[in-house]
Design a protein around this nucleic acid. Structure first.
Lengths: 193, 193
DNA sequence: ACCGTTCCTTAACCTACCTTAAGGTTTTTT
DNA sequence: AAAAAACCTTAAGGTAGGTTAAGGAACGGT
């Protein structure tokens, strides 16, 4: 039983949909439950779906040659997640997506999305705006990485995602801001002093 | 005299335009020449245009509290540049855009772009795809920043932008990959040994 | 209710990268 | 053609952040 209402509500914050578009979307969308630690996308597979999180929490990350994980993105209720690069090029992804909590997503397959774009330009608009916002977020993150100290990056993270602070393990936050968990631990201690 | 042909050609690599759309675009676009070191956007101003580079080279960068510049993006022939965040929110930009070489751009004002979106959904599509590609690029850069050493980042930069290597001053490349020019100088020496 | 992970912290030592300073070369401007 | 910027390099000393190792607390699965 798909709870598509929250997805539609989300889209209509950006652009209204007519009944036909809503209907078309409802037909294309499928739902999926993921357990804690279960993969939604595995390194080496081609990303074939855009995923909208209904509840729970996902992370997308890269595993480097040394086996260290580097978190690129978290997604909670109301967020989208996918390896857009892999999705568009049909190349195997270098990323993994898995669940930090039991999670439920709605997903649209690439071909279905293209179909929606063609039949309902509103979706072009919605995903343009969505991607623009995500792009601006990534820009800010690049700037922070090349211009700020780890402590500042941590504080900026807390400011931007206050609700994630006591929901996500510290080790994941460390990975997201680009430091080791040991060093983040040190940063916290310094902040308390 | 606007050379809009190269812009249209660029767009049509992604989506064909009908005559009306081409015509509408031609009316909205203006051209502008910028001297070396001249600003196209200055820190504190609101970014009101999307800029398409016809020839030359621009950079977008942030100046931090210490006065150090951090390059977020370069744009050469065929590239787009704007502070999308500022453009969308009508908030003053924190970035500067200036010219590393004498440069000529075509530009579209925000309101005109919105008008194009409404009348010709093809532009929604084009800018969606454009932004998706830019987003993927930023994602890769974030990953490199949090997972790679400066030497690796330099090599990846050369691989991705081989044509920029002997066109852009070293100090700008250093700023882009997030190290001091002195350290990049050292990296180069090590690579030659 | 238990056991096994995962999670967080501390501390000693190590390294990638920054800072400051200086001198030489190339490019731009006049 | 000269003067002024901008550019690149070298080197010494400093600091942010990594590595390794180890112990304890909290959690998740059965």
């Amino acid at each position: 039983m798909k709870d598509i209402a929250s997805l539609i509500q989300h889209i209509e914050k950006i652009i209204p949909l007519d009944d036909e578009a809503r209907q078309a979307l409802a037909i294309k969308v499928t739902s999926k439950k993921i357990r804690r630690r279960q993969y939604l996308l595995q390194d080496g597979d081609i990303c074939r779906h855009y995923n909208f999180v209904l509840n729970g929490c996902l992370r997308m990350y890269l595993v480097d040659e040394k086996g260290t994980e580097h978190v690129l993105q978290f997604a909670i209720e109301g967020g989208w997640i996918a390896d857009i690069g892999s999705l568009h090029t049909d190349q195997p992804s270098h990323f993994c997506i898995d669940a930090l909590e039991p999670t439920e997503v709605l997903r649209i397959a690439k071909e279905d999305l293209i179909d929606l774009y063609v039949k309902h330009p509103a979706f072009d608009r919605y995903f343009r705006v969505l991607t623009e916002n995500a792009f601006v977020g990534m820009q800010q993150r690049v700037m922070q990485n090349i211009s700020s100290t780890a402590e500042t990056r941590y504080l900026l993270f807390l400011e931007k995602y206050p609700h994630l602070f006591n929901r996500i393990p510290l080790v994941q936050i460390a990975s997201f801001i680009g430091v080791t968990p040991e060093f983040l631990s040190k940063i916290r201690r310094n902040l308390m002093a």
